[in-house]
């Protein structure tokens, strides 16, 4: 098979990513830069950040790879799901580069990008994927030609829940690592546990945890501990349900929240007890990154997909199961 070099552009939220991969799966460059976080993510400000940093980041990535724009043979970008203004920055950049240099273009589903880079960088073959991040919480498996969503959040994402909790209590941003650190010195207090079939809800938990932390006499460490224990037990439970339901034999973790060591420990324990394989990709491809978009672009292109300009409109609510998987 002919070797193809692909440039991937990722900009769905606060992080901008540029990745360059060849069709053998070698990561030649994988640069990310994120908007400094004070409070939550402001979509327009994040987009502004991405627009200002895209060109310099692209130059750095090309430099890392030892390539020039003329060496790029395929351009892939995140079409969604994500924040509209951010998505449009990546889309406009991808279209412009494609037109200017005459390079074919592929629009990638961001969630599928996480799965495919995980399959590339771990031994997982046909995993149930637990995708947990600031904006997404999904349990996904390949079934009947598509990545189907077996469980997902019905309201806010797990990362959003923890970040918002940390913001409510002025613990600092990003909230995930702070809450994880405080939780190490905590013990359990009851918080609401909400699982609906294989779906989850975090908004009630967020309200209750915020209230508990503001209640005099409660230790913040205990609330952090219990927030993590409750939310992660919910996530692990629906993952186990989906594992039993789909009869898959591997669990793959993906997304920024997957770096949390307590969550990893819980899912690993569950997988071991069920006799399933457990996989976590390396840190540089776990959170949002350009390499995952480039790699998925290569897979799609190899199966015959190229998008015309009019097919590259961004989709803020792009569903994982909307995409027909032609490359598996």
């Amino acid at each position: 098979m002919e070797k193809v070099i692909c440039l991937g552009i990722e900009a769905t939220a606060e992080k901008l990513g540029i990745g360059i991969l060849d069709s053998e799966g070698n990561i030649l460059a994988n640069r990310t830069k994120h908007q400094p976080l004070k409070g939550g993510i402001h979509p327009r400000e994040a987009a502004q950040h991405h627009a200002e940093n895209l060109r310099p980041l692209l130059d750095l990535a090309l430099q890392d790879a030892g390539l020039a724009m003329g060496d790029i043979e395929l351009i892939a970008f995140s079409r969604g799901p994500g924040m509209g203004p951010c998505l449009r920055v990546a889309a406009v950049a991808a279209r412009t580069l494609s037109l200017k240099h005459g390079i074919p273009l592929v629009g990638v589903n961001h969630c599928i990008g996480h799965i495919e880079i995980g399959r590339l960088k771990t031994e997982a073959k046909d995993p149930l994927t637990l995708y947990v991040s600031g904006g997404n919480t999904q349990v996904i498996a390949f079934e009947g030609g598509r990545y189907r969503v077996f469980g997902e959040t019905l309201d806010i994402a797990i990362g959003n829940c923890i970040d918002q909790f940390a913001r409510n209590l002025d613990l600092g941003a990003p909230g995930g690592p702070v809450v994880e650190r405080l939780a190490r010195k905590g013990s359990y207090v009851p918080l609401p546990y909400t699982v609906k079939g294989m779906d989850l809800s975090f908004s009630g938990l967020l309200t209750a945890a915020t209230g508990a932390a503001r209640t005099e006499g409660n230790r913040i460490e205990d609330v952090c501990f219990s927030l993590q224990e409750t939310a992660f037990a919910m996530i692990t439970e629906v993952t186990e349900r989906a594992l039993a339901h789909t009869e898959k034999e591997e669990v793959l973790m993906a997304g920024g929240v997957a770096v949390n060591s307590r969550l990893q420990e819980m899912v690993r324990t569950m997988a071991r007890e069920r006799g399933a394989g457990f996989f976590v990709p390396p840190g540089d491809v776990l959170g949002d990154n350009g390499a995952m978009i480039a790699w998925t672009g290569i897979l799609m292109h190899r199966s015959g997909i190229t998008h015309r300009l009019e097919e590259t409109r961004v989709e803020q609510r792009y569903r994982t199961d909307q995409v027909e998987v032609t490359w598996r």
Binding site: Y188, T230, A233, T236, T269, M270
Partner: peptide, 9 residues
């Protein structure tokens, strides 16, 4: 019992 979650929960 599930070993992944705290005993109280």
């Amino acid at each position: 019992p599930k070993n992944y979650r705290v005993p109280e929960l």
